[in-house]
Amino acid sequence: MGGVLALPGSAVYSAAKSGLRAFLTALSSELRDTGVAVSGIYPSGVDTRMLQHEALHGGSMLNFVGKVLSVEDVVRGYARAPRTRRLEIFLPYGDSLVSRAMAFAPALSHRALPLMERVGRLGHARYLKRKGLG
């Protein structure tokens, strides 16, 4: 979701992901009449070594606001892409609603960040416990 909502502490990451999202959108438009479909998969936090590192070394609590996905969850999203031919597939969809709403009004989203971080700290604690890391 880093390409949907730019978060503090993730400026470079968000910029790169936003660029990829813009590229996919433009490419989809360019290929519209060829029968080729382009899809982007936008997961929330995924249980990878990168997320585990962030969980243990001061990463953003915002990674833990929603459900932490398994790699298998993301693979299922990729498997859906050719069938749906949708430009954007959000995993989980509910997280995308919050992210897109916050991205719609960046000034307001800054006010919501403290609440989101508190929610994320609870999710972070659950994640560490589930993984036996905390």
Rank of each mutant, 00 (worst) to 15 (best):
P114E: 08
H53S: 13
L91R: 02
R49D: 11
S44H: 11
F64L: 08
G94E: 15
A26M: 10
A55T: 07
R126S: 06
P92V: 03
G3D: 00
G94L: 14
D73A: 07
R130M: 14
S44M: 09
L24F: 13
R85V: 09
G2S: 15
V68E: 03
L69M: 09
L56I: 13
V71Y: 12
L5T: 01
R126H: 12
R118T: 13
R126I: 00
K131D: 04
L56T: 10
R49A: 14
V46A: 10
D95S: 15
L56H: 01
A101C: 12
S14V: 01
K129A: 14
G3I: 00
T48L: 04
G2L: 15
S29N: 14
G40V: 13
V65S: 02
Q52D: 12
V68W: 09
V4Y: 03
A6G: 11
T34C: 03
T34V: 07
Q52K: 15
R100I: 06
P114T: 03
V98F: 05
E54P: 05
R21S: 13
D47F: 00
L69P: 01
V46H: 06
L5Q: 08
E54D: 15
A26R: 09
G3Q: 00
G123I: 09
R86G: 04
L91H: 00
L31D: 01
L5E: 10
D33F: 02
G2R: 04
R118I: 04
H53R: 13
Y78Q: 10
A107E: 07
H53T: 11
A37C: 08
P114I: 06
P106L: 07
L20K: 05
V38L: 03
P92E: 06
V12W: 08
S70Y: 06
I41W: 08
V4I: 12
L91N: 01
A112I: 14
A22Y: 12
A55L: 07
F23Q: 10
F23V: 11
R80V: 12
L128H: 07
L31H: 03
A16H: 09
Y127M: 03
G2P: 08
H124Q: 10
L115R: 11
S14N: 09
I89S: 04
Y42I: 08
E88K: 03
E88Q: 10
G2M: 14
